[in-house]
Design a protein around this nucleic acid. Structure first.
Lengths: 242, 242
DNA sequence: GGCCTGCCTTGACCCAGATCAAACGGGATC
DNA sequence: GATCCCGTTTGATCTGGGTCAAGGCAGGCC
């Protein structure tokens, strides 16, 4: 195992490097990634990719939030993934996109054109491995979410979502308190409903209920304080084994 | 791209080779895979792996059906995946299992001990790429299923499940009729319910309803005939784009 | 044969969450 | 300040699917 070197090359300066594709690359590989890297930005609400379209690039979220959405003919929609900063989008070796990607907030992405990226992946086992790892993580997350969608009550669903957002936020500020959490909800009630397989009215009602019961505090409609994370996780209904 | 050769080495005789890890390997690589390959069998109902356990192997289903299941403390369970012949299980580069794997019918698996497999993967880009592809496919399937769980009605859920099983069966007999289908359900009503996020009573009622409405015919409790696949897909409620 | 056991079906009733409808509130624009 | 707009809250009512309960049916065992 040749130790990976995270040098001060330009790619290493990429704000998303902490979890990114290049996490294990050496200076030379970073240089090559850097050569095909570019940034894109989107406004809140803009589509990034439509399901079925050719995807000409892969990339990671730098700032903002994107969502993966599936839609039925009659308009029913289900969000199937939430892309937070450092999350990867794209299917190297795959043709079309399998779902819509939409910018939920203003969004900046760090992209690689697909063909050169695939070529580079061909030559660089690190990257293929890192990608496999990330995809396995996403698969785990998707399957955990299937339990939420299939078996949890509305209240448990809301608590599960809040817990996930709180955890992701906590990961960004290492060393912070983990018994407590405070963050701005990046989603409208409708987006939360689409993620949870509920209606926006039910989301609103359950948010009110959690507030009334002291599980969360709300400042305005979006700013959430969790006085006791254990309590929240309890409300979310845990898996039998972790 | 050096053309892969599928030789008559022993690994090539593995009954699962058609979609397996080794699909693109050359004779030498097949030889190496063969050296670390072995078979395991399980009886219907037996656990293959418990969530959280160390997984000492990866492998593919040869015959039979296994299911991936997640369980909550209070016993609510959600099936998060169905493993049919040629499907791959395992998380190279990952420690514990993230969910229970249970043999739903009698089951034979073709396994590789994990460490040697990972070493081989390290040296063999084909395998890493193939694995990435398979994982991306599984991720797509999982996300499609999230739409089923989150937004479809009980009747649509049942139709979706029947459609999936019919499609997988059709794939095994190429050249067959695709307007019609006939197969044995490999799942009990309870297992179907766990997969669909329903109760077994609802599954039973909706099966009866689909039968009454002529969408399917039932011989015994398990043998299903679909006289018109288009009709079934219609009942399943299609995605807006495909 | 009779009995058990496991799986499935059907009926009666109930409730969580959907649906329909109205009103609130805060920011932007004039 | 008045108006509009959009996201949100809240209330009233409806309903799909859950829950509880009672058989039905087929295969295995005595």
């Amino acid at each position: 195992m040749n130790a990976p070197v995270l040098s001060q090359s330009r790619c290493a300066d990429c704000p998303i490097r902490h979890r990114a594709v290049c996490a294990r690359c050496d200076a030379d590989e970073l240089e090559q990634l850097d050569a095909i890297k570019y940034y894109r930005s989107y406004e809140a609400g803009q589509p990034v990719i439509w399901s079925g379209d050719q995807m000409s690039f892969v990339g990671s979220v730098v700032t903002g939030i994107a969502s993966l959405t599936q839609t039925m003919e009659d308009g029913r929609t289900q969000m199937v993934g939430l892309l937070l900063p450092s999350d990867f989008v794209g299917r190297p070796g795959r043709e079309g996109a399998a779902y819509d990607v939409v910018a939920t907030t203003d969004l900046v992405m760090c992209c690689f054109r697909k063909k050169p990226f695939e070529d580079l992946m061909e030559r660089t086992p690190h990257i293929a491995h890192r990608l496999l790892e990330m995809t396995l993580d996403e698969l785990d997350a998707a399957r955990e979410w299937m339990l939420v969608l299939g078996r949890k009550t509305a209240r448990e669903k809301i608590a599960s979502l809040l817990a996930i957002i709180a955890r992701r936020n906590a990961a960004l500020t290492p060393g912070g308190d983990t018994d407590t959490a405070e963050f701005d909800l990046p989603l409208t009630r409708e987006a939360m409903a689409d993620y949870l397989g509920l209606t926006l009215e039910t989301v609103s009602r359950q948010m009110s209920a959690l507030k009334r019961d002291g599980v969360i505090q709300l400042a305005g409609k979006r700013h959430v304080t969790v006085p006791d994370m254990t309590r929240l996780l309890d409300e979310a209904g845990t898996d039998s084994e972790d």
